[in-house]
Design a protein around this nucleic acid. Structure first.
Ligand SMILES: [Zn+2]
Ligand SMILES: [Zn+2]
Length: 175
DNA sequence: CCAACCGGTGCC
DNA sequence: GGCACCGGTTGG
């Protein structure tokens, strides 16, 4: 679009929403998440975020009180959210080491897909281009990846219960 | 300084 | 149409 036909812009060739935030359906990672798995991998470096954080589960965006100059609006609007720290991905203390981010972690500014907090994956804000119809999503994904986490061949009802996508059980305890 | 979030872009 | 990666930026 704006980039003008410069396909070279993103040499990666690929493109799209990295986190999943865009596609509420990108939970495919979470789908595969089963019981706790003991990954031999160990985080090479220190983690900046760990444990529970005080943020508004409603919006998720942490509020930065007091005026912080221009970088952070005094209004305390959305800036950067932090992982809930209770969801499975958040509990993953080890990187899968197989996802593209893990392989490119050196150059990738993204966290391991397996470790991506489900909360952050969900609606970041009421404004987005993607995240709307999860209908064709599954159909499209089949074409793109050619693989579906589930075995369901065709069944719109078989889709993951997004309705039950509610957080683990800390949302109510928060606030 | 590093790690990670978030927005935007391009390809399928 | 929607997803996947890059890249800038924030946050600690
Ligand atoms: Zn990974
Ligand atoms: Zn989480």
């Amino acid at each position: 679009m704006a980039g003008a036909g410069s396909d070279s812009s993103r040499a990666a060739g690929r493109a799209g929403p990295d986190d999943a935030r865009g596609a509420a359906a990108r939970n495919d990672d979470a789908l595969s998440l089963g019981p706790s798995q003991g990954d031999p991998l160990t985080l090479p470096t220190r983690r900046v975020t760990s444990g529970a954080v005080n943020q508004r589960p409603e919006i998720g965006y942490k509020r930065v009180g007091t005026s912080q100059k221009e970088s952070t609006p005094p209004t305390g609007e959305k800036r950067k959210r932090k992982p809930c720290g209770v969801c499975e991905p958040c509990q993953q203390k080890t990187n899968c080491g197989e996802c593209t981010y893990c392989k490119n972690r050196k150059n990738s500014h993204q966290i391991c897909k397996k470790r991506k907090c489900e909360v952050l994956k969900k609606r970041p804000v009421a404004t987005s281009q993607v995240q709307k119809s999860n209908r064709c999503f599954w159909a499209k994904r089949r074409l793109h990846r050619g693989v579906v986490p589930r075995n369901e061949t065709s069944s719109p009802t078989a889709e993951p219960a997004l309705s039950s996508l509610n957080l683990p059980a800390f949302d109510i305890a928060n606030i």
